[in-house]
Design a protein around this nucleic acid. Structure first.
Ligand SMILES: [Mn+2]
Ligand SMILES: [Mn+2]
Ligand SMILES: [Zn+2]
Ligand SMILES: [Zn+2]
Lengths: 139, 139
DNA sequence: TAAGATAATGATAATCATTCCCATTTTAGC
DNA sequence: GCTAAAATGGGAATGATTATCATTATCTTA
């Protein structure tokens, strides 16, 4: 994984309690989760905070280079700690996502990083098509 | 560009007039556009069809391997003919997207195609970070 | 070609993730 | 402690997308 700390556009102010709670819960979970689910989990863990704060915290954490997100086919954003360099094969028919066990961009990102006047935090990469089961079923 | 015709999961039935109109309008435009905008354009061009049909046609065209989509940071899907192998650098602060002039995956997709029991139609690849202007402005 | 079956369409309502608003609370600088 | 700025919560508003269902076009087959 790459070090993102050097190009953070926001001053390295300390996270608030709520913001830290959001980040910690996100790190606790293994998979990428929606803001809604994160909110539910936090409440269950006794944390007292509003849904708007979860969204605000996630946005801020993204700008700090600590969190990344991708969007599912039904328009829901899934968040994860930026360490996870994880990609998927997503079926256009049933919507299921199969995780890839490698990132085809590992080497290339650095090259791109140097060639553009743009500070890169993370990338999303996703392959779309039809999964094995969907290929065999009619319609 | 790759040939996708051989693995279409839907029978190669002829497109309806409306479906063809959606595809044609999409090919006419140079950039990726939202379903809403496509609907507006079609109406302006005298085409008579409903918004729901635009969404339905786009879904079907994706399953036929003729259309692809990516999702913007504010949750809107942008559609384009599948020929366009185009990627972006997207700013987390201002949301602007700078197009890349190459695809870092050209060679790799074929390899992946062979290694997985999954029929790949297209991929999305996007780099997120902060653009030059946003880096220099406070907050 | 006509009748019935099937698929497509349009208008509108419903969904639902996300954002907006604003009053209240917390934090930071002094 | 005092004051200004930032953060927060809850509920309303937004807006893209989807669901519903009655109507219309297309296909099948006698
Ligand atoms: Mn990667
Ligand atoms: Mn590409
Ligand atoms: Zn599938
Ligand atoms: Zn920017």
């Amino acid at each position: 994984m790459l070090d993102h700390s050097f190009h953070s556009p926001l001053p390295p102010t300390r996270l608030t309690t709520k913001q830290q709670a959001v980040l910690t819960q996100l790190e606790r979970l293994q998979e990428a989760v929606s803001a809604q689910r994160l909110y539910a989990e936090l409440r269950q863990h006794g944390e007292s905070l509003g849904l708007a704060t979860v969204y605000r915290s996630l946005d801020l954490l993204k700008l700090k280079g600590l969190v990344q997100s991708r969007t599912t086919t039904d328009g829901e954003a899934l968040y994860s700690p930026i360490q996870q360099d994880q990609h998927y094969l997503t079926c256009l028919q049933c919507g299921s996502s199969v995780p890839l066990d490698f990132c085809p961009l590992q080497a290339m990102e650095n090259q791109l990083r140097r060639s553009q006047a743009f500070t890169i935090y993370y990338h999303t990469l996703e392959f779309f098509g039809v999964c094995e089961p969907c290929t065999h079923q009619a319609q």
